[in-house]
Design a protein around this nucleic acid. Structure first.
Length: 332
DNA sequence: TATTCCCGCCAGATT
DNA sequence: AATCTGGCGGGAATA
């Protein structure tokens, strides 16, 4: 049952030409007639449907209506028919499914067919992602104290999605991350001795990655893993924060002060140690509460009645980014 | 204007 | 050869 997913309303009926008599018209002739009529119409109404309504986030919402994260068992997904049902090009399905696949919500079974697992594996997978993020030393990389992870060769969108998420998992709760810094960490720009890229090429690569991250962020928002925090005062750029289900462990006592200079971020770190934060789900439509089969942790998310503003966090983190930039004169 | 990111070209992979 | 996948970036909509 597809509820009328506000798919733009059916055009009103109106006679294209008077039907003079009800004589039979061959299918071919009919098609020709329709084609001709269609051609007379000056291209479909320019933007009857607004850009926003076509966003990946909304498309993913619709997709998740068809294939819910909370579902028992599995379902088969046929990409082409799903695309048709959602009224989009198949190309868009790849954008979504690749990211969902990277989150282990689906697996590619065969041509045009995926097996949907929903979020049943998400929690355990997030744990693994966190570990991987630690192994990759992403936290240090963020601070320019460790090399960036090597560039993936295949399935870059999926890998990028995983790494992007790792950043949130590896950092203290409520850490705000913006796309610019994410790209810097996630993409190995230490041009290999191979071909030295021209500054313009590097800039294009960078911009391209940011575009991808926007796409990824949109489906993450739809899944309910992250949330966009707007209105930050320092930079206009938006920042994102993790609101997903996986409760990150308190950074146990072994985590002693990182020997880094005092930066706004390190201040933020220590503050968060003192004041344990909760994971806020806030107004996210989708509430993620999965249970892992092997389950130890209760992964539910609770929403405090009134979420305190995290303006400071924002400011600190963004400021930290600026500081870093200045400190190590990173340009791209 | 700057930011966001849809759209679809096109190349490489598969069937 | 045909079709499927998915990287990629132009440029339009939006803030």
């Amino acid at each position: 049952m597809y509820e009328n997913d506000n798919i733009t309303s059916t055009p009103k009926r109106c006679a294209l030409t008077e039907v003079t008599n009800s004589s039979y018209v061959s299918p071919t002739a009919n098609l020709k007639l329709l084609t001709n009529v269609a051609l007379q119409y000056p291209t479909p109404p320019p933007s009857a449907v607004h850009r926003k309504e076509k966003s990946l986030q909304i498309l993913c919402d619709k997709f998740l209506n068809l294939y819910p994260l909370h579902c028992n068992g599995t379902m088969e997904i046929q990409l082409d028919s799903t695309a048709a049902r959602l009224g989009v090009e198949k190309r868009r399905m790849y954008d979504i499914i690749n990211i969902l696949e990277a989150m282990q919500c689906a697996v590619h079974k065969r041509k045009n067919t995926y097996l949907w697992h929903g979020g049943s594996r998400l929690n355990s997978f997030l744990k693994m992602l966190k570990k991987q993020g630690e192994n990759l030393r992403l936290s240090e990389a963020l601070r320019g104290r460790a090399p960036k992870p090597p560039a993936p060769k295949h399935k870059t969108l999926g890998v990028l999605a995983q790494r992007f998420l790792m950043l949130f998992l590896v950092e203290p709760q409520n850490t705000l991350i913006n796309l610019e810094m994410a790209v810097k960490v996630l993409i190995d720009t230490s041009n290999k001795n191979k071909t030295d890229f021209s500054p313009e090429q590097l800039d294009r690569q960078h911009k391209s990655k940011v575009r991808r991250l926007y796409d990824i962020a949109n489906v993450f928002i739809s899944i309910g893993l992250i949330e966009k925090v707007s209105g930050n005062l320092i930079l206009k750029k938006p920042v994102f924060k993790y609101v997903g289900p996986y409760k990150i462990k308190k950074p146990d006592k072994t985590a002693v002060a990182i020997p880094s200079p005092i930066t706004p971020l390190s201040v933020l770190d220590t503050q968060q140690k003192i004041t344990p934060c909760h994971v806020y789900a806030s107004r996210s439509k989708r509430r993620l509460e999965f249970t892992t089969p092997d389950n130890d942790t209760k992964l539910g998310v609770t929403t405090p009645p009134d979420t305190p503003s995290h303006k400071w966090d924002e400011i600190l983190l963004v400021a930290n980014m600026e500081l870093n930039r200045i400190n190590n004169g990173i340009l791209l």
